[in-house]
Structures are given as C-alpha cells and as structure tokens.
Design a protein around this nucleic acid. Structure first.
Length: 601
RNA sequence: CGGGAUGUAGGGUAGCGGCUGACCCACGUGCCCUGGGAGCACGGAGACGCAGGUUCGAGUCCUGCCAUCCCGACCA
C-alpha cells in the first residue's frame, strides 16, 4: 500500500480531551476518529490492527476446538425478559421499538449473547451425544455506558469475541474451561501483551469459576492484587487477605468515654475533630442481607468488600441500609453507628482486623457523639470474625507470607463458569445416557478485541509514538524513500514494496513528497515494526538501512537480498515476536514489564 | 446519576464589552529545499456550540439547552 493512496491523518498535536497514552496515540497516529462519546470510527490503519487481533483470536479459538457462528446484534426483548436481565442490565441495555405493519416490535441491541446462544442451543441440541460443544462469534456489542471514557477502552459499541461452552457435567465444563483458559494465554501471548490471569468474583458455582485476563497498565480501570513471590493474583473484589498480624495487643485498656463530635459523621471528619488516626476507628456499616439488617465492623482505614460481606452473611444479595433503617436499628443518624449499645439486636460481623483494635473510636449510636476507649470482647460482642474488607497494598498474601501489591489493569478477557442459569431459564436441556432430562452446563468466555489494541498501545509506546509487535501491526514493514523526487530512489522503493508484498509481507510505502523529518516522525508515530529507508547514502553502496521500531540502532543490509532477509525476519517475528519481547521490556514503561507467566490454574 | 471543566477554521491556541476576529500547524499555488515535523511569497477556509437575554454595541456579561472531557458512583 502506498501512503498517498490510503488515509492516514496523523496529528502533530494532541487533540483536546485525549489524556491517556492509548487514546492520544491512536488519535494522533490516525488509527481512530471519534464520532461521538463512546463511538469511534476505525480508520484504515486502526482497522488493520483490529483485524490482526481478530485473526489471532479466531485462529486460537479454532485451534481450541471452538466453532464460529454469527448471531444478530438485533435481539427480541422477550429473550431478556425470560432471564430477568432487562432489569439486571437496566439502562445499559439499548432497547427500542420499531413499527411493523400494525404492531410494534420491542428489541434490544445485544450487550452480550448468553440468551441468544442458549435459545439457539435449546432449539438444536437435545442429546448428550451432541455435547460438548463450544460456539463463538466475533461481533459488535452495544452497551449504553453511563460514562464512556479513555478513548476506545470504554465505548458504547465494541467488538467482542464471545464464546459459550455447553457440557453435560461440571467436570466436563472444567475441561472446556481449561481449554479456553489456555487459548486465552496463547492469544495474549501472541499479541505481545504482558498479561496477568487473575481470580475473579464467581457466581453460583464458586471456587475457581472465573478468571479475568488483565493487562497491567497505569490507566487501567480495574485493580488487581498480585503477589510477586508466589504468583497469586486476583481482582480487588475477589482477593483474599492472609493472616492478620496483631499490632496493638499489649496496650492498657482505657475506659469507654462518650465525646461530642458535632457534625462529624465521616472517618475523616472524626479524625480531624478528635485528632486520631483512621486505623483507631471502628467503622460500623449497616447492611441489609436479604432484607435483614446486619452490622458490619471495618477498621477506619479499610474498605468494606460487599462480596465478602455477602458471603460471610450467607446472603444472596446485600445492600447498604437506607438512612431510615439505620436510624431505627442504631437510634442515630448516618455516621454515628457503633457496635456498643445498638438500639436493636442484630447480628454483628467484624473484619479480622477489628479483633486487634484496642481503645478504638466508634459511633455512640446517638447524633453528634462518638465513643473512645472501645475494645472488642470487653465492650461489644461479635457474632463472627471474617475477611470482610478489600485488600490493600502491603497486605499479607493468602497463599504465602509475602506482601501483596496492587496495580491497575485493563480487563481484556474474562472466562466464567456459568452453570445452568441460562439453560434453565431458556429450557436448554439434554437427554443423558440414562434418559434423564438435564439442563446443559454452560461457560462463557469473552475477549474485547478493541481492548487488545488499546491496551497494546497503552503499554507499548515511547515519546515518538506506538511500538507495535509484528503480530498486531497494521503493516509489518514501512518502506521510506528519502527523496520522492529522485527517480532511482523511487524505483528501488517501488521494487522493494512490490517484491515484499509478493512475498506475503504487509508493506506500507511512504511515497509522499515530504521532507525526511516529516516521514521519520510519522514513521515513529504510527510505529510500524520494521522501517526500511531507501536513500542515497546506502544506495551508492548497494545497501538499505533497516531499523526495528523498538531498537535505537539501525543496521545496513544488502539491497540485492533485502527482500528475502526482511521476509524471513518478519516471518520469525510473526511466530514468536521474540525481538519485540526482548526489547520491549527495557524500552517501554516500567509498569508493563510483568512476566507473561502468571498462569496458575 | 452526583461533582468539576471546556466549547473560537481540519488540529492546537490567543482574543481587554467597541472598527473588517488574531496566531501556529495543516490545506492550495509557485519558488526553493530533501537524513529527524525547513524557508519565502500569495491564497482558501470561521456568522466564535445552539437559543434567548442585558447593552447604543456581545466571541467577551447573564440564563437555559446541547455537546465533549475529567473525578466519583455504576460496569453479567
């Protein structure tokens, strides 16, 4: 392809509004163009990268035995009503009615396709002999995001690979799941992404039923907890915390005292008022566990983790109580609850760290007052101690004794054991060998194709622009004739371009009559892995100057054999991307140098 | 959905209530140049987001709306 014949609108300046590297660079390199908030056009260069990612995903899905199909983006609303997900999705589901003759048809744009695929399988699969089966598609998904942001990382319309497995038993589901898990590792590895599979919050099946594939990145929206010593990795909702160390056990217990704290209803305000530190505070949260109030005690410097609380309370759902309920059970307005002298008798759950609090400070269960000198056991009783808070940096690892570290990450993939939720709701049943009718056991597996591209750019760039691995690069080789007006130069460049194309290499030739500075800057910006400069300098000696985008130094190669040399290199890079991986860790952001082998299972 | 900000040419910006709205980049034409975003000259492109209002006079002040961005909440 010739630069002059395609559309690559590069920008010297950063458009207003773009802040994170991937957004800035994708815009500046002419990969994407914004149509509205959360909707981007993929320009020719961006589309090529997207297609490469799509192809890798497709190849690995096929290799793992999954079978591709394509479902409509348009779905009947009735399907979503049957699984109760009209409410579950709420405004995220884009739905509308269209007129057909004299009636109205309610439909929704698919935000995901569990309902559609389950309905499909229910229609066509009825015997254990047809299972196991894993189906996938690569399709545009629609979600009315409350707040699209970060360029292409969070949009209302995005390309997703979604796969669904159908099995006859939980054990068989485990095998399907492992295949997908392994395929995901290969996909992210081939894309040259430093990824981290983390344990994620799982649904009804429990255990290791869900993993997210995270790309550590400063601007990621998710937080993962990672133990560098043993490899334990989990997302923040899920991460367990190892044994807590008692810090202040041998302290003389002081008497409980009521102190006035007018208007101080938050941890920060109370600390400010009383001159104490958050870790002396006992935060008392009133939750409704399946509708019944429970008190939850968390140290002031910790964050409550609702999933952990829900599990500890043995409840199906949990939510913070309304102010009215809080007033009723504590006798005080929001902000002054405490475990001592609650108005109503209710179960008290406490995080493990609470047991080590001595002379703590907590709400007095009356407006504008707190209690000091409060200690567990002596002053209040706890029904159950449990792990109820979210992990923090430096917390002990649950698997080994090392310290956990926290890092931001982009969720690029998710594998999930669904069980029978959808098959039961939509009647996807099969007859087993004993002639018993049973619901099919499902798993679902998603990958955000756009996020592969965005997170690659986000984590692989330098001051000049993007650093693509060959596997995802829009073009593999960029031929740069130094002087477009020079006939000999152009002839060599054209020949190189044509022969490389013929050899199956994706070549872009910058045939614009621009000064060298412009071409070099653009070359760095769009980040094509191998740059071949055709200039007078080398031409005289029968040499071409080549440079990997991630290398500082350039090398000269023989012009006569250049095509085979380059084609060989590109083939090697496609296979493993070894040059890219070797160099990238030192050339790029230090935050992305995490190893690729965080795989545990 | 709460909080904050911004809207001036394709991009980036300046613009004090007062004449025909300024600059840089990009774009077009010509000259010149061709190894890291050159130079000169000429030129095209804007009813200053939209609608009201205040004023003798509004890009500038006020109100509403719309749009975009950021922080937070939400995110099977």
């Amino acid at each position: 392809m010739r630069w002059s014949q395609t559309l690559i609108p590069t920008m010297k300046e950063t458009p207003e509004g773009a802040e994170i590297p991937s957004h800035v660079l994708m815009l500046r390199a002419g990969l994407i163009s914004q149509l509205m908030a959360g909707a981007y056009t993929y320009m020719p260069l961006g589309l090529r990268a997207l297609k490469k990612a799509e192809r890798i995903v497709r190849e690995e899905m096929d290799a793992a035995g999954a079978v591709e199909l394509l479902m409509p983006a348009l779905t009947p609303i009735s399907l979503w009503e049957q699984t109760g997900r009209v409410q579950a999705f709420g405004d995220v589901l884009i739905q509308f009615a269209v007129r057909r003759q004299n009636r109205k048809v309610q439909m929704a744009l698919g935000p995901t396709h569990e309902e559609v695929i389950t309905d499909l399988v229910a229609r066509h699969v009825s015997s254990y002999r047809q299972l196991p089966l894993t189906l996938y598609q690569i399709q545009t998904k629609f979600r009315n995001e409350e707040r699209p942001r970060f360029g292409v990382l969070r949009t209302s319309e995005f390309l997703m690979k979604d796969a669904y497995s159908f099995d006859t038993s939980v054990e068989a589901l485990g095998r399907s799941y492992e295949k997908m898990y392994a395929a995901y590792c290969r996909i992210f590895d081939r894309c040259g992404l430093a990824y981290l599979p983390v344990e994620a919050e799982s649904g009804p099946i429990g255990g290791d039923a869900s993993h997210e594939f995270m790309i550590p990145a400063e601007n990621g929206e998710d937080t993962v907890v990672h133990c560098k010593a043993c490899g334990y990795a989990a997302n923040l909702e899920r991460a367990e915390i190892g044994a807590r160390a008692p810090s202040t056990v041998d302290v003389e217990l002081k008497p409980v005292q009521k102190v006035p704290t007018p208007g101080a209803g938050t941890i920060a305000q109370v600390c400010n008022f009383l001159g104490c530190k958050p870790d002396q505070m006992i935060k008392t949260l009133i939750y409704l566990a399946d509708g019944k109030p429970v008190a939850v005690l968390i140290r002031g410097d910790h964050e409550a983790n609702e999933n952990k609380i829900r599990r500890a309370a043995g409840a199906g759902s949990i939510q913070l109580a309304e102010p009215g309920v809080i007033q009723r059970v504590t006798g005080a307005p929001v902000g002054f609850a405490g475990p001592v002298g609650l108005k109503e008798k209710l179960p008290v759950l406490a995080d493990y760290d609470i047991q080590f609090v001595r002379n703590g400070i907590t709400g007095a269960n009356e407006a504008d007052a707190h209690l000091t000198g409060v200690s567990p056991t002596r002053d209040f009783q706890v029904e159950k101690y449990a792990d109820l808070r979210s992990a923090q940096d430096q917390d002990p690892c649950p698997r080994c004794s090392a310290k956990l570290s926290m890092r931001h990450a982009i969720e690029a993939g998710h594998v999930f054991k669904l069980g029978t939720k959808y098959s039961e709701a939509l009647g996807a049943k099969f007859l087993d060998a004993q002639e018993q009718l049973r619901p099919i056991i499902m798993g679902c597996y998603g990958i955000g194709i756009n996020r592969i591209i965005a997170s690659l750019v986000e984590t692989n760039n330098d001051a000049g622009g993007i650093l693509w691995p060959v596997a995802l690069a829009p073009y593999e080789v960029l031929v740069v004739p130094m002087k477009a007006s020079d006939e000999a130069t152009m002839k060599t460049a054209e020949r190189l371009h044509d022969e490389l194309s013929a050899a199956g290499v994706d070549v872009l030739m910058d045939d614009r009559d621009q000064r060298p500075g412009v071409k070099f800057k653009d070359a760095d910006l769009i980040g094509i892995p191998l740059r071949v400069v055709v200039g007078e300098r080398g031409l005289k000696q029968g040499q071409l100057e080549v440079k990997w985008r991630w290398d500082a130094e350039l090398q000269m190669i023989d012009a006569a054999t250049a095509v085979t040399t380059i084609a060989d290199w590109i083939r090697q890079e496609r296979a493993g991307g070894q040059r890219f991986k070797n160099r990238i860790s030192s050339a790029c952001h230090p935050t992305t140098t995490l190893s690729n082998k965080g795989v545990e299972s």
